[in-house]
Design a protein around this nucleic acid. Sequence first.
DNA 1: TCTGGGGTCCTAGGACCC
DNA 2: TCTGGGGTCCTAGGACCC
Length: 425
Amino acid sequence: MKCWDLEPNQIALVDVNNFYVSSERAFDPTIRHKPVAVYSNNDGCVIARCAEVKAMGVKMGTPVFEVRKFFRERGVVPRSSNYELYHDMSCRFTASLEQFCPDVEQYSIDESFLHFRGFGEDLAAHCQRAVSAVHKWTSMPCCAGIAPTRTLAKACNHFAKTLGVSGGVLQLNSEYHRQQLLKQLPVGEVWGVGSRLAERFEALGIETAWDLSVSHMPTMRKAFGVTVERTMRELQGTPCIELAPLDQAKNEIVSGRMFGKLLTDFDALMASIANHVMLACEKLAAQKGVAGRLVVSLQGRVPGGEWREQSAYTALRPACDAPQVLMKAARACLREVFGCGREYRRASVMLTALEEASETQSDLFDASTGMEAGVADCLAAINHRFGRGKVVLGSVKLSDEWVMKRDFLSPAYTSDFSQLPSARV
DNA sequence: TCTGGGGTCCTAGGACCC
DNA sequence: TCTGGGGTCCTAGGACCC
């Protein structure tokens, strides 16, 4: 039997409660005691809810049109996603945690794993101090779960939140405790088990995390693959899931979005795609990479009325990062998939076959002069300073028809001087 | 006319996460 | 009528090689 509090390596998962809602409330005291829901891009569906709205039974991903009237009646305050604000709040959150642990592994915009090796004192008390510091410094409430594996830490965090544990911290402290927790955790709540797997598990009589952890490993491995085996081992207390560092170069870069309204015009589609090419180029430049392939996808309505995605790609030889070249490739792809008179609702640009710029083989017959090199940096710098889309390549017609709908957007409190919150005494 | 087996690489698709 | 976006990992299957 393991004695959990003597485990030399402990992992704490700290995450912000209802992160998007908490970010919105941080700078707007008028909604601090009101029910709040945050919408996805284009105000399409509900992606974040405060506790009150959750209690009303509104599920994650509910289409906005289904709840609009209900929200009005119940006084729920809607907000469009404000990613500039959330990104900034996320940085503040992580910076706060770094005051309490030298090894913070950011996992998503609102959660981080904190690694403690051979921590001598009372770790739960230490994490409670971190939780209250985050609240004090960012005004956002958060919770922590502590255990020897990431999956168990996630489970503890779940209970810290749902049981309203005092101090917001729950540490796994004995084998008996592990069993009790896992028996109360529905299998679908386990980190790594989504709705599909949960359904298949339940058909086999596996209903709780405990059931999963004591299932026959070789059988499960054969039926569900190595990912499920890892999850099982983690539930049993053996760490075996590693995360790729956040700053590691990506294997693929995607920029895509639904339009604010349906588009049928080639130039309007190209304007949206040009925007995605520029965003993708910025990400590519940030990791000093070059792309070997560019894929353009359009989601359009087919005669039956259904939405279907069509893609075309261009191979880039040699692999490159020049916006002009990528833009030309994207235009060629768009010509290939574009159908006259068809309605489109979404476009995306994907860069794949990425390589490090410094390791790229150059083309013996490459006639380029090296002039492209500076263009990407220059465009990125101008757009960074004056706002997205202020400068585009000459071949693209300006159009903002594709711009997304954000009817309930809060101000850029933290990233634009003209929108700083004001206070009267 | 008969025609193996193992390895690698690539791609598409599925499932998951937030 | 109206349902997000960006990423990861794994697997299966096909093409190709010797």
